[in-house]
Design a protein around this nucleic acid. Structure first.
Lengths: 117, 117
DNA sequence: ATCAAAGATTGATATCCGTCGATATAAGGA
DNA sequence: TCCTTATATCGACGGATATCAATCTTTGAT
């Protein structure tokens, strides 16, 4: 119900929906979900923080320290990114680590790129 | 004040902000603007409708007909896309035509693609 | 068993945003 | 000039969302 929408529906990203023929209502709604997750300054910084970490993985404890926002707020943003399929989550002991889902981002990238051809 | 943010700040898109090093607050806010414009099902369909038109140009009158939404609502969405730099506007007589700004979309596309490298 | 720390969840609040009806503006035609 | 049509703007309403404090859950340590 809240898994990666882009990964679960590769047909949408592999086609060229923005150029050849207009998007259907369903396609537009599916694509809007990860874009909405991305369209927030805090979540963009979170994503870039995770992506720029040494091993592509970041502990929530470190992410919390990087912002002047409450812990629940960061937790909320991470949840939004995770449910949109942009971040993967793995728990080790008490700590939770997030890493970027490259496939999802790549799908969005090629989707937008199709328009410029 | 409301021109294309990506085109006016190519440094942001040409660098690799999402991978190498975390985005600054200013960069994140600048990138969030066009992404917010894009992160709506109606606006995605509007953009794809314009992009898929024969000569890459679409009259507002045709766009209005394609949606079961009021004329002011479509006008609002077109304004958001235009102010985000994703659509260009040209008036001929009584009619207004929109066309996709490929540079802006390409900038966003490469920006997201940088993460997957 | 108890405690402390990490992270998620809940409930509340304030702001943002999508939508509409009504109205304004602008351009062409009679 | 007056009317009609195309598009934009305004003001209002309702739903979504970003944020916080408080609380809960889970895990490891003592």
């Amino acid at each position: 119900m809240s898994k990666s929408l882009l990964v679960e529906a590769p047909a949408v990203t592999c086609a060229s929906p923005l150029t050849k023929e207009p998007l259907t209502v369903e396609q537009a709604e599916r694509i809007a979900t990860p874009l909405k997750a991305l369209a927030d300054p805090v979540r963009l910084r979170l994503l870039s923080l995770v992506a720029s970490h040494a091993d592509g993985e970041a502990c929530v404890c470190h992410l919390n320290e990087a912002f002047e926002l409450s812990q629940p707020t960061i937790s909320h943003h991470l949840k939004v990114l995770h449910e949109a399929g942009l971040l993967e989550r793995s728990k080790r002991g008490v700590w939770v680590y997030y890493r970027v889902n490259s496939d999802a981002l790549e799908g969005l990238s090629t989707l937008l790129g199709k328009v410029s051809e």
